[in-house]
């Protein structure tokens, strides 16, 4: 039985067994986590198993993959001036080193596997006061950039620190009743960065 035959059968199987509603569909955040390659393996397999049998989720995942992949392609171009400067400096050191740097991609690693783990606020915490954000130290980190986003994804505040805590008191207004997202990007001494997963909290 060739691939086309199996595909035909599989398409029919998917169409015939399609979920009748979206009640069991994974959350959009899970689909995004797959597109960003930061979902833990066990959960990833469960979600993908559903997605491959659910046309609606497949289309949503394809859309998120589109946005994520385009974002990944956009970022290097904005790093280009820095890479060019680095290349120019290294040119003085030696052609061999230059070749290695020019062909190097800065590693961007996301998620808990990379060690960029958020500690507090815990996911979904409802707080009375502007929080103190805490995360685990990351080996090799030169410093950290912490970004807090509003409900619409707007950047509310971006802070840079060499510490692993930062208080938001007096830094920005966080109107009550809203949900906020935050993440940490560790910039590594040897170049590249590591990103945490996105944390969420509410202010009461």
């Amino acid at each position: 039985m060739n691939d086309d035959t199996l595909r035909t059968l599989h398409d029919q199987l998917v169409a015939r067994r399609a979920p009748s509603d979206r009640a069991r569909c994974p959350e959009p955040d899970d689909l995004l986590a797959i597109a960003e390659r930061r979902l833990a393996e066990a959960r990833r397999l469960v979600v993908l198993e559903h997605v491959v049998g659910c046309a609606a989720c497949r289309n949503e995942l394809d859309l998120l993959r589109t946005v994520v992949d385009a974002g990944g392609d956009l970022t290097p171009a904005h790093r280009a001036p820095w890479l060019a400067l680095a290349a120019a400096i290294v040119l003085m050191v030696g052609a061999g080193t230059l070749w290695r740097l020019a062909n190097r991609e800065e590693p961007v690693v996301r998620g808990a596997d990379a060690g960029a783990v958020l500690v507090a606020p815990a996911a979904g915490d409802a707080l009375d006061a502007p929080p103190v954000l805490i995360w685990h130290r990351i080996d090799g980190a030169r410093d950290y950039r912490v970004e807090v986003l509003g409900a619409g994804g707007a950047l509310l505040v971006a802070l840079e620190t060499a510490d692993t805590t930062v208080s938001l008191a007096g830094r920005t207004e966080l109107p009550p009743g809203a949900e906020y997202s935050w993440w940490v990007r560790a910039r590594l001494s040897q170049g590249g960065e590591r990103r945490s997963e996105i944390g969420r909290f509410r202010v009461r």
């Binding site: 398409d11 998917v14 169409a15 979206r22 569909c25 959009p28 955040d29 689909l31 995004l32 046309a55 609606a56 497949r58 289309n59 949503e60 859309l63 998120l64 946005v67 994520v68 385009a70 974002g71 956009l74 970022t75 986003l149 619409g152 994804g153 707007a154 950047l155």
Partner: peptide, 28 residues
């Protein structure tokens, strides 16, 4: 990138809430 991801998630959630036929569902 963040704005695009956020906009996409909002669109997906909105369509799920409205129980519209989402995102070219007939394709598969």
């Amino acid at each position: 990138y963040r704005a695009a991801v956020s906009a996409t998630l909002d669109l997906i959630r909105g369509r799920r809430r409205k129980r519209e036929v989402p995102l070219e569902e007939s394709r598969l």
